[in-house]
């Protein structure tokens, strides 16, 4: 095995992989932040008694969940501009894809968590004279949020990994950089291994942070 793979040579490509890492993180963070807001809105839409709100939220969730991320990415980057006449750069498109995609799944997480709170909690709040919104905000949401954290962590990890698919719409993220390097320097083993380790480092860090948050929010 000696000398067959040039692991030390990976160091030369670290700056380029670093650029990729930057875009991966940028798209993940901004995309998931927007996704979380979308998920909150549409998740509450799914528990709404208003039929129109419920219907809109359901259509969004079903369309996104029912189509592959890869198709969504390609559609938004290549097809959408033909419809709207407005070109989005690849990074913006990437953020839109991650936001829309994670938003649909997070909406279902939000719905499930809110619905998992015992009915008596809402009744107790309302019987004290709090209105629906106050009860949601002070009683239901804080309890639901705590239950959301494990599935949210799961979704964050999935979405971070999904950003690697954005290489097909030319987002200069980690996987894109890896492919670029490997096809020029024929060091697939070293580079793709390094890329995998980078992803693992991100997701493990996230898992760690989530576990701390979960412990902080733990009710005695």
């Amino acid at each position: 095995m000696e000398g067959r793979f040039n692991w030390a040579g990976v160091i030369d490509f670290l700056p380029q992989l670093g650029t990729g890492l930057y875009y991966t993180l940028l798209i993940s963070i901004v995309g998931l932040l927007i996704g979380f807001i979308l998920g909150g809105i549409f998740g509450l839409g799914r528990v709404s008694k208003n039929k129109i709100v419920y219907g809109l939220a359901s259509v969004y969730i079903e369309v996104i969940r029912g189509t592959p991320v890869l198709v969504q990415a390609i559609w938004i980057f290549f097809a959408l501009p033909l419809i709207t006449g407005y070109n989005m750069d690849s990074v913006t498109s990437g953020i839109v894809v991650i936001a829309l995609n994670s938003g649909a799944y997070i909406a279902e997480i939000v719905r499930g968590s809110v619905q998992s709170i015992e009915k008596g909690q809402m009744e107790a709040g309302r019987s004290l004279g709090l209105n629906h919104l106050q009860t949601m905000r002070h009683i239901i949401w804080p309890q639901a949020f705590k239950r959301m954290i494990p599935p949210l962590g799961n979704q964050f990890i999935i979405s971070i990994k999904d950003t690697s698919l954005l290489s097909v719409i030319l987002v200069p993220e980690l996987m894109f950089q890896g492919r670029l390097i490997a096809s020029n320097y024929f060091n697939a083993v070293e580079i793709y291994t390094t890329v995998a380790v980078f992803y693992l480092a991100i997701t493990l860090t996230l898992s760690f942070v989530l576990r701390i948050i979960e412990r902080r929010l733990d009710i005695k």
């Binding site: 008596g120 107790a124 019987s127």
Partner: peptide
């Protein structure tokens, strides 16, 4: 109108 429930329904958080 105060209300007291069978299951107490205190806010656990």
């Amino acid at each position: 109108i105060g209300m007291v429930f069978q299951q107490f329904n205190l806010f656990p958080h």
